Amino acid sequence: MSPLSRRTLLRTAAATAVAAPAAGLLAAHANAGPDGRSARSSAAGLSLKIANKTGEYDSGSIHVYIVGNDGTRQCRVTPEGELKPVELSDNGPDGYTDYAIPLTGDETPLQLPEMSGRIYVACGEKLKFKAVDGGQGAALAYPAAWVESDPNYGVVHDCAEFTYKSGAMYCNTTMVDMFSVPLAIHLKGAKDQTTGTLKPGARAKVFEQVRAAEGFSGLVIDDKRVIAPGHGIGAGKFAEDHFAAYIDEVWSLYEGKDLKVTTNAGTFTGRVRGGKFAFTGPGEVSFDKPSTKDVLFCDGALAAPNDGVTGPVAAVLGAGFNRTTLVTEAEQPSKDPARFYQGGTPHHYVKAMHEATEDGKAYGFAFDDVAGFASYIEDGAASEMTLTLTPF
């Protein structure tokens, strides 16, 4: 997988309603299996099953949407598994497309063609995707359920992300934007893997934990969803300076001592000089002091270009800020989850997401894959994927 490509996708989705899943998402691994050899052909598509175990919604009231990019254009998948381009003419009389795939029972079989994108699930009502002029062809205005004026604000929905190419599948559940519907992925192929499964009763506990945390309560939207703090800032539901004191503490601490950051490129040594966090090692990189918003979106001063040097260091720094481990550990990344989310201003949103899952893994922020804590799995010879809406 190419984590930086995934982060680019996540930030794009966070920043704009017209979110186009990146055309080369996970391209670094798309043609090779786990051992580096070419994966088997996938002309027939991947067997995909959607399972309804919500206990709250009957299958007739749940709809699925598979949307994304085939490498050259935005597209969507029909109930028959056909990949079709998004067209402006797809908008109906109400101004929105109807790409809904209905569930046919407790487990609905589908075919997933080669593409990168998202599998949305909507409970109770259909989602409204609008085809718009993207400048280089038709694009989709994706749901932005953290915005009250969005037409999908009242719909209970969520999504999983994936790239499927040449028989290889890379996929994850995500809470980077919000959490609403508990989802689990079961991937079969060279291995048998699952991710994203919540503990019994965990959905309600997430809502309770976030609501009870000082400064985070505004992120809980009735019983529909919990929105990520970065989006909360934009909606006036989260303080834009929430992590300012912690950021100041990190900056002050490393004016007088070194921070060691280990990446695939090697180990970097950093210290704050002249207001910048400057690192030397396999390369020279520096970062301006981030804002709370930069930390939450893993962007701005913590932007991670896919350059093999600045990007990996930014990712580790971003993870350290979100996990509040930078003050307590001068060697990063921290790999002991028991030490995460401590101190006076922990990231209660992400903490709640990780505590909710059976394996402790979740995609609570865009750098959550640092040190392997994201709800992500891959298989270079995938044969079947099941996305389960687990009990509420």
Rank of each mutant, 00 (worst) to 15 (best):
S149T: 15
S149P: 01
S149D: 14
S149F: 06
D150R: 06
D150H: 03
D150S: 05
D150K: 02
D150I: 09
D150P: 09
P151N: 11
P151W: 14
N152H: 13
N152L: 12
N152K: 08
N152V: 09
Y153R: 05
Y153P: 03
Y153F: 15
Y153M: 05
Y153C: 01
Y153L: 00
G154N: 12
G154D: 09
V155F: 04
V156K: 11
V156L: 08
V156C: 10
H157A: 05
D158V: 02
D158H: 09
C159Q: 09
C159K: 14
A160W: 00
A160Y: 03
A160G: 02
A160N: 00
A160C: 12
A160M: 12
F162L: 12
T163A: 11
T163S: 14
Y164A: 04
K165G: 06
S166Y: 13
S166I: 06
G167W: 03
G167F: 03
G167N: 02
A168K: 14
A168Y: 05
A168R: 15
M169Y: 07
M169E: 10
M169I: 09
Y170V: 03
Y170A: 11
Y170H: 14
Y170W: 11
Y170M: 11
C171W: 07
C171Q: 05
C171I: 10
C171A: 10
N172H: 05
N172G: 08
T173H: 05
T173F: 01
T173I: 08
T173W: 02
T174M: 09
M175Y: 11
D177R: 07
M178S: 10
M178P: 00
M178V: 07
S180Q: 00
S180F: 03
S180H: 02
V181M: 04
V181N: 06
V181A: 04
V181W: 07
V181L: 11
V181I: 14
P182M: 06
P182D: 00
P182E: 01
L183Q: 11
L183D: 09
L183P: 08
A184I: 01
H186C: 03
L187G: 09
L187P: 07
L187M: 07
K188C: 01
K188G: 00
G189E: 00
A190N: 10
A190K: 04
A190V: 08
A190G: 12
K191Y: 05
D192Q: 07
D192T: 12
D192E: 07
Q193A: 03
T194K: 11
T194W: 08
T194I: 07
T195G: 03
G196W: 05
G196F: 09
G196N: 02
L198P: 03
L198H: 13
K199H: 15
K199M: 06
K199F: 12
K199Q: 15
K199A: 15
P200C: 12
